[in-house]
Amino acid sequence: MPKKITMADVAEMAGVTKSTVSRFFNGGYVKKSTRDKIQKVIEQYNYVPNTFARLKAKESSVIGVVVPTLNSKVTSRVITSIDRYLRERGYTTLIKNSDHDIDLELQNIQKLIHLNVDGILISSIAMTKDHKKIFEETQIPVVVLAQDYEEGISIIDDDYNAGKYVGEYIGKTGHKKVGYIGVYETDVAVGLHRKDGVLDGLKAYGIVEPVLAKSDYSFIGGQKCTREILEEEKVDAIICATDRLAFGAYKVLQEKGLRIPEDVSVVGFGGYDESSLLTPELTTLKFDSYGMGYLGAETILKMLKGEPVSKKQIVEYEFIQGNSVKLEDLKDYNKG
């Protein structure tokens, strides 16, 4: 078996400096011809950098965390919980933000693998074939958050049943014409499962043709979709796949002089702190994001110790009844 090569060996064989190889692995600028030379050596010798490894240590005590954005209350709760749990047990978190870009997300995963972190927690935008290929090939334990990863280990929100709960709630409160602002279906959990739950919940109360719109996760996207819905039909309720989208709905409805909830009810998902500051206070459904982070961190450490773990864990949710849904037709509604 050939001896393990070093970064200096890679540099020498590629005809470049060691600092250039280091820059290559850390995502710095290296011209394409040089990158190709380095990559050829890496592939030939199956070289993996060990940047964080301690001298004569088998573990780095670093856990990589990949998230879709840093500009999210849900993500911040998940990261806070992960970091706290791991820090108390002597581990350091290395966080990579993908900015809702699939290609960048894949690059971030590869970088963490190259840095030889002990394990990876990924709150994934979507589970693509490329994701699965990387996870299958790496020897590093991986736990997927917020997306169902049938071939591996995942921690997920109960998106379908949460969506169904909200759909039924809007049906039970007497609404007849409903708009739904969802997200793109590349995000299977929110874009498909949550939407399917909402639609099935509405259907149970005879609402079979809601006005559908799709957006990214942004405040601006929520505004755009609300305008589209209002232009298509007069609705008495708008369900939003996230609270941030609901914020956009509030803005447009208020600009058009429509009262919430007297003219149009609004409900979201997320339970953001800011949602309670809106006028009227937003009715929303809150997932246990801290619980997701805790379970993810606990699971990755169990995997590192070789302990058995559940293939799939589902976190709970809580319905928060604000004042943004018209309730005059609600009869003996049971929140639980």
Score class of each variant (00 low, 15 high):
P68E: 07
G28I: 00
H100P: 01
F24H: 02
L94H: 11
G64M: 14
Y91L: 07
S76A: 15
K32Y: 00
Q107R: 14
S33D: 11
K32R: 07
K56T: 14
D103F: 11
Q39H: 07
V48G: 04
F52H: 14
G28C: 02
A57F: 08
E43L: 05
V74E: 04
V41K: 05
D99R: 15
T92D: 11
Y29M: 04
F52C: 04
F25G: 00
V78E: 04
Q44H: 13
I95S: 05
S72A: 09
T93S: 14
K37N: 01
N50R: 11
G27D: 05
H100D: 13
E43G: 07
V41I: 15
V78C: 03
T80G: 06
V78D: 00
A53Q: 04
D83S: 15
K37C: 04
V41W: 00
I38N: 01
T92Q: 13
Y91C: 02
Y29N: 00
D36Q: 12
F24P: 01
D36R: 05
T69P: 13
G90A: 08
A57C: 09
V66E: 05
L112W: 12
R89D: 06
Y45V: 01
K73G: 03
R87G: 02
E88H: 06
I38D: 04
N46H: 08
I109G: 00
G27I: 09
L104Q: 12
T80C: 05
V30M: 02
K40I: 09
H114P: 00
T34P: 02
R89P: 07
Y85L: 11
N97V: 14
